[in-house]
């Protein structure tokens, strides 16, 4: 291999590896939550440091490629999207870690009926993340489109979990502590779905050179009125840079 090929491949491998760790941590955080396993949660929390280190390595590799190779066209987009996805995966890792922390707290109290639905929602988000990473690794536009369209399902699950938790809290104020923890977990998971959507958008950017659609064009389930903060969680979309024309 000559030119940028070898280095771009190394960068893609590093992203895939990071994606694997982020998926595993999310999956284990969900297991810790459903099995009320504080020890497993502690492992996830410790393992997050690995993702932080990997993000740094991807950054260094990307800067090196830009400096030494000055890639163009698809290779340039691969480096730019690599940087963005590494930072997205680092955020996913943070959310898995936060979920694990809340799983530790929940493990101390009695089991709660809403843990099941929250974990199911988490599995759905995890599947979205896995498919988004597969689409990115294989440059699979069709799979990326499917992920992009399906984020609405996670949003709908979130709305229904949200309603359910509110009902429990109103019925029995003694559950407010656990329900509040689960609400944050649900929010984390909903955001991970948005991050998967972003990775799908980056796939399309790398393959087709089309800038991602504005965030407000993403399919979205309507929020429960008055119960949630405005959407600001999705990583900035539409920010894929395009090469400006020199024409004055």
């Amino acid at each position: 291999m000559i030119g940028t090929d070898a280095e771009i491949r190394k960068l893609s491998n590093a992203i895939a590896e990071m994606g694997g760790v982020a998926e595993a941590n999310l999956s284990r955080a969900l297991d810790a939550l459903s099995r009320r396993d504080a020890a497993l949660a502690a492992e996830v929390i410790l393992d997050d440091k690995r993702l932080d280190r990997m993000e740094k390595q991807v950054d260094e590799q990307a800067v090196r490629i830009l400096m030494m190779r000055q890639p163009m066209a698809r290779d340039l987009r691969a480096v730019i999207s690599g940087l963005k996805i590494a930072s997205t995966l680092e955020r996913v890792g943070d959310m898995a870690k936060n979920t694990a922390k809340r799983a530790q707290i929940l493990a101390e109290g009695p089991a709660h009926r809403s843990i099941g639905p929250v974990v199911r929602m988490g599995r759905q988000s995890l599947q979205q993340l896995t498919q988004a990473l597969d689409a990115y690794a294989n440059g699979d536009l069709e799979l990326a489109r499917q992920v992009w369209r399906r984020d609405v399902e996670v949003d709908e699950l979130y709305n229904s979990v949200f309603r359910e938790l509110l009902t429990y809290m109103m019925e029995d104020p003694r559950t407010i502590g656990a329900c509040a923890q689960l609400m944050f977990v649900a929010k984390n998971i909903e955001r991970i779905g948005d991050h998967a959507t972003f990775i799908a958008e980056m796939t399309s950017y790398v393959v087709s050179a089309e800038a991602p659609p504005p965030a407000d064009e993403r399919p979205k389930a309507p929020l429960e009125a008055g119960f949630d903060e405005p959407e600001d969680s999705a990583p900035a979309s539409g920010a894929a840079p395009s090469v400006g024309s020199n024409a004055g």
């Binding site: 030119g3 940028t4 190779r69 066209a73 698809r74 090469v243 024309s245 024409a247």
Partner: peptide, 23 residues
């Protein structure tokens, strides 16, 4: 074509390879 297009989204594989130093 327009310089921005040639270096951002060339249509020919040979162009893409050349601008990335593959041959």
């Amino acid at each position: 074509g327009d310089t921005a297009d040639i270096f951002n989204k060339p249509r020919d594989k040979r162009t893409e390879d050349y601008i990335n130093g593959r041959f």
